[in-house]
């Protein structure tokens, strides 16, 4: 397993996945920075939570993070789909479970890297803005909940990316479903039925009314993730390599 994970990371070196993740995350920080700079001039209170964090999160959780998940998983799958890399990979003496697990783990690590980068970026931005009392722990908890809430999206897109050889399928689904998420998030009743809303609601739960569904959301997210990983794994084990 360790070797497979190492190999997956080695493959990533030849792609622009990490660069793409970094650039897209920095866009969120740029928006938060601009928000905070404008409102520091007005001497607003709690610049960090109300402007830097919320400014970054309003675009990150709605648009950037779901699109990062889409891009990372679709590009990782494309590495094998193009030139039928599956044939070479699965002909090696490795179990399919290890291959599948390693890919999932590496994909999730790259997605987590985006959250860590955002965390670090927010702290650096806060220092530059001269913000005292940075809520390190509060922010860490929020980002952890955001990650758990996005598991449903990760599970669905991981399944689609490996199931369909055409890269446009996961890309179109990921982008197409991220598109109405802000509209649905405004509904107190129906957001729970739409997994693409979970990151928005989880990261800005003081903006959106969760109607007491916080724990339900995390439970549903983990359940969807497990279901799709299991279905994907079953299908992957039966995959014809020719």
């Amino acid at each position: 397993m360790k070797t497979m994970i190492f190999l997956e990371f080695y493959k990533l070196r030849c792609t622009r996945i990490v660069l793409t993740t970094t650039v897209l995350t920095l866009f969120a920080l740029l928006q938060g920075w601009q928000f905070a700079k404008l409102d520091r001039a007005r001497e607003a209170e709690d610049i960090f939570r109300a402007f830097l964090y919320q400014g970054s999160m309003s675009v990150y959780s709605w648009l950037i993070f779901p699109l990062i998940i889409t891009v990372v998983l679709a590009m990782m799958a494309r590495l094998e789909h193009s030139q039928n890399g599956w044939k070479q990979l699965l002909a090696l003496p490795v179990s399919r479970g290890v291959v599948y697990g390693a890919k999932l783990l590496v994909g999730m690590t790259v997605i987590s890297y985006s959250l860590i980068l955002l965390y670090a970026g927010l702290i650096v931005a806060a220092h530059f803005l001269g913000v005292d009392n940075i809520p390190y722990l509060w922010m860490m908890k929020r980002l952890l909940v955001l990650f758990l809430a996005s598991l449903a999206i990760i599970g669905i897109l991981f399944y689609l990316s490996f199931q369909f050889a055409h890269v446009a399928v996961p890309m179109a689904v990921g982008a197409g479903l991220a598109f109405p998420s802000m509209l649905v998030a405004n509904s107190e009743k129906y957001w729970i039925f739409y997994p693409w809303d979970y990151p928005i609601v989880a990261s800005m739960n003081y903006v959106f009314d969760m109607g007491g569904n916080n724990l339900h959301m995390l439970g549903v997210s983990v359940l969807i993730f497990c279901t799709f990983v299991f279905i994907g794994f079953s299908s992957f084990c039966r995959k014809d390599i020719l």
Partner: peptide, 19 residues
């Protein structure tokens, strides 16, 4: 050759447009 790159630039363009 990698069609993902065009799509990713489109994603980035739209994200940046909101900013």
């Amino acid at each position: 050759k990698n069609s993902v790159i065009g799509i990713v630039i489109g994603f980035a363009g739209v994200i940046l447009s909101s900013i």
